[in-house]
Write a protein that binds this DNA or RNA. Sequence first.
DNA 1: AAGCTAAGTTTATTGCGATAAACCTTTTTT
DNA 2: AAAAAAGGTTTATCGCAATAAACTTAGCTT
Lengths: 119, 119
Amino acid sequence: MEEFKLFEAEYKFMEIIWELEPINSTELTKVCFEKLGWKKSTTYTMIRKLAGRGILKNENATVVALIKREEVQKHDSEVLLKRTFNNSLPIFLAAFLQDKKLSRQEAEEIKKMIEEATK
Amino acid sequence: MEEFKLFEAEYKFMEIIWELEPINSTELTKVCFEKLGWKKSTTYTMIRKLAGRGILKNENATVVALIKREEVQKHDSEVLLKRTFNNSLPIFLAAFLQDKKLSRQEAEEIKKMIEEATK
DNA sequence: AAGCTAAGTTTATTGCGATAAACCTTTTTT
DNA sequence: AAAAAAGGTTTATCGCAATAAACTTAGCTT
């Protein structure tokens, strides 16, 4: 559970990795400098911390993610729903949709997903 | 926009206020001590900070919220959707519903809401 | 009038996420 | 063989949210 919690900087970093993995660690320091403005040591610090938590691994200078983006997304959704909406999808939607309009296509897509998730 | 962003401690604090408002400030220090373990000065510090940001007001020792819980809920939802799901409700639902089952009643409720939010 | 309580403010301290300087070792290039 | 680049680690620093100690002032109570 808790293993999927990422702080802001960690999340931005992982987004880069999910996009580019597998990626050489030196190459990664360059990308992080360009996209995040990080110094080399900052990137390596991040690699080490996330490796220690099983979020990614760095072997032979090659960095790969050990958890999927979808797992983190799911975790984040659940945290928000639990913390803020008493774990209720209808309550969430009421808040989120307030004053928003969906296209016909989005609506159909969503209804289909709801239908599929119904026992 | 940014005015609705609450940090964790602030959020827990506001939950108490939304539940009990209007509430006398001394009474509030007692509740915060019981529920959050905060000392009196911590509660007053929090009151002052949030008052400065227009989140609540404290007049004649009576504290009331100036923003509604629903506004914060909406803000938090939008932040998550933007940050994590490319602002797409279907993508969010795909992640959240994965391996979850909805009751028939929930499903109907949700579909109705979707329908109402469709242009 | 002396003490107590309510209702705060001023000013620190703490904890931790974010960031990086400085240093080290090994491999590659010239 | 000297220099440079790759691939790191050790150890700090910084910023800021979280928390609170200590002090103040005014009203109420005995």
